[in-house]
Amino acid sequence: MTTLVFARDRRDSLLAGALPRFVAAGWVLFLGLPIAALLVRAATVGRFDDAAAGRAVLDALVLSLVTTATSLGLAVLFGLPVAWLLARRPPRGAVLLETLIDLPIVLPPSVAGLALLFVFGRQGVLGGPLAAMGLSIPFSTIAVIIAQTFVAAPFFIRAARAGLRSVHRDLEDAARVDGGGEVAVALFVTLPLAAPALAAGLVMAWARALGEFGATIMFAGNFEGRTQTLPLLVYSEFQASSDAAVVAASILVVAAFGVLLGVRLARRGSVTELGGTG
């Protein structure tokens, strides 16, 4: 009897401790090795003295920063009201609406690029009239921003919707009892309480926009300084067997890791703060 209990204890501790740790170590290797290999390769590139490629990397970096910042702005501008509506005043058919909003998350980016081409392309539903007015969207920086917003905004809307929903109505009602108007309640109660969720959504959306490749190359094309973002540059330069691919890829890895870590640390700080005052 005792040996049986003992055996079960040992088995439980194996399942609870050693096994997950072993699996986790394997997983860390699986994720970490490619990243490490890339960074090591970048470190051994040595002095990166190809001036033209260097300028292309810099152009792509600037373009990526500008376009992702703009896409993020658009995601908030249009996404926040949508998330608000879905969280607080779900219209009839909200399930369909939410599914539609989530769709770009599942769609392969190449499908998104093709669909965008049919709407904003020169023969497109909207692109046709715009082209007639002299504004051609494909192959422009605007197309890059449209592609990024299309694929990335759903991540923000999803997180914002969940965040707004999780804010207790009681807290808002208390503020209203204290004489707060609807706008004041939203600005000073609801949004601050939902802030961590909004921030998480922003990071996810930014990360998705930064990594956007398929929709961009199909819809916005690939041109240095205009539509060639960092992921497109990595692809193009790899085909040219250029070190610039490795350099640009490393910039992407470091930037993405830095932002994810930064946000994580900042959120941990704010959580501790809440814990301290509460």
């Binding site: 192959f139 190359i217 916005a220 094309g221 690939n222 539509t227 060639q228």
Partner: peptide, 13 residues
């Protein structure tokens, strides 16, 4: 306006 992946992508657009 764009440098596509390959000759087929150029034709397609």
């Amino acid at each position: 306006v764009s440098r596509e992946d390959n000759a087929a992508a150029v034709v397609a657009k």
